[in-house]
């Protein structure tokens, strides 16, 4: 982490933690609301999980405060996995 000009506070960590808990509850609720095993259910669960992972990486793993190169690396990895899902989706949707 570079300059520590904006060091995280406990309050900030607690807010992040609370957000993660709320999103977990929403995940459980969404699984009932969408039928549990449908394509929609899986898509919603993955979307919420991605948002949660972003919070963890950005706030708990301090990427927010780190050098731009790390953000670029993570962005590339995210795009890579997105492209895997798109290519897999082409097969699954059209098989």
């Amino acid at each position: 982490m570079s300059k520590h000009s904006h060091s995280p506070s406990y309050k900030y960590d607690l807010i992040t933690f609370a957000a993660l808990m709320i999103l977990t509850i929403i995940t459980i609720w969404a699984s009932y609301a969408t039928g549990g095993t449908s394509v929609l259910a899986v898509s919603v669960a993955m979307l919420i999980a991605t948002i949660k992972a972003t919070f963890v990486v950005r706030n708990f793993m301090h990427i927010k405060y780190d050098h731009i190169i790390y953000k670029v690396f993570i962005g590339i990895v995210m795009l890579l996995f997105l492209s895997f899902i798109v290519l897999l989706g082409i097969d699954y949707a059209l098989r």
Partner: peptide
């Protein structure tokens, strides 16, 4: 190299469209 894996699977039963893309 990350986007070409499907060429190992042309005869696996994968969709035609995916085969063309790969």
């Amino acid at each position: 190299g990350y986007f070409v894996w499907g060429h190992h699977m042309f005869t696996s039963g994968m969709s035609d469209q995916a085969r063309v893309v790969f």
